[in-house]
């Protein structure tokens, strides 16, 4: 764990009070706020030069919205970590953002300590889940397994292993990783890996779907690589 290492963070929120508050919290904790932005357009134009390690992002921002920004920044720089901060917790938006590549989600009422901890953890490659997000992700896997796969589909519908389902259910029931590790008699790191896998499969599936959609629409010329 890289405790105390200075992180390059970018904050995107259309609410000035929030943007400055979050930026100040991060700076006081010793991080560098390399850019802020008030809407999706600003965020995307400042992102390439700022090169943040972590993007703290409000979903309800003027166009393009948080989901679109997440997808675009992760496409430009797969190493960036996106932490979604949402006030209203519009559930479908949160799920879309996670599928687009966000690896952390917090409601805005989370405490400052929770926010700093979450930034640190997503920067370390960990996933920051709320029980609410775990419930959404569980629901999404069930929904995908309900939809009969198209006969020509060569990519598998993502599925959770029994262990992953078990871990995700416990997260959704509000257990901490530590409690889960104790209950299942596995290591803390293993719990984290299981949780990460649930998101990775979903994001991979989402990317494959997007690429296939682009190919079908004849837009593949615009796809880099």
């Amino acid at each position: 764990m890289s405790e105390g290492e200075q992180l390059r963070v970018m904050v995107v929120d259309d609410h000035p009070m929030w943007r400055e508050g979050v930026a100040r919290d991060l700076q006081e904790a010793g991080h560098r706020v390399v850019a802020t932005a008030a809407d999706g357009k600003e965020a995307l134009s400042r992102f390439p030069a700022a090169r943040p390690q972590v993007l703290v992002l409000d979903l309800q921002i003027p166009e393009p919205d948080g989901v679109a920004v997440t997808g675009e920044v992760v496409r430009q720089d797969p190493s960036v970590r996106v932490l979604v901060l949402s006030a209203s917790g519009e559930q479908s938006d949160v799920l879309e953002a996670v599928k687009a590549g966000a690896t952390g989600y917090l409601v805005k009422s989370a405490s400052r300590a929770e926010l700093l901890d979450a930034v640190r953890r997503v920067a370390d490659g960990d996933t920051v889940f709320t029980p609410g997000l775990a419930g959404l992700v569980l629901g999404e896997y069930r929904r995908l397994s309900d939809v009969p796969a198209a006969p020509e589909a060569d990519t598998e519908t993502p599925r959770l292993t029994d262990r992953e389902t078990e871990v995700l259910r416990l997260v959704a029931k509000g257990l901490s990783y530590k409690q889960i590790a104790e209950r299942l008699v596995i290591s803390h790191r293993t719990v984290q890996n299981h949780v990460q896998n649930t998101l990775r499969k979903l994001q991979l599936h989402n990317r494959v779907q997007l690429v296939r959609y682009a190919l079908e629409q004849g837009l593949d010329d615009d796809q880099p690589g």
Partner: peptide, 18 residues
């Protein structure tokens, strides 16, 4: 109302934190 609510939610969350 969603726009208004979002603003109100932001302020409430801020008060809660600060």
């Amino acid at each position: 109302s969603r726009v208004v609510h979002d603003g109100v939610l932001q302020v409430l969350a801020l008060v809660q934190r600060r």
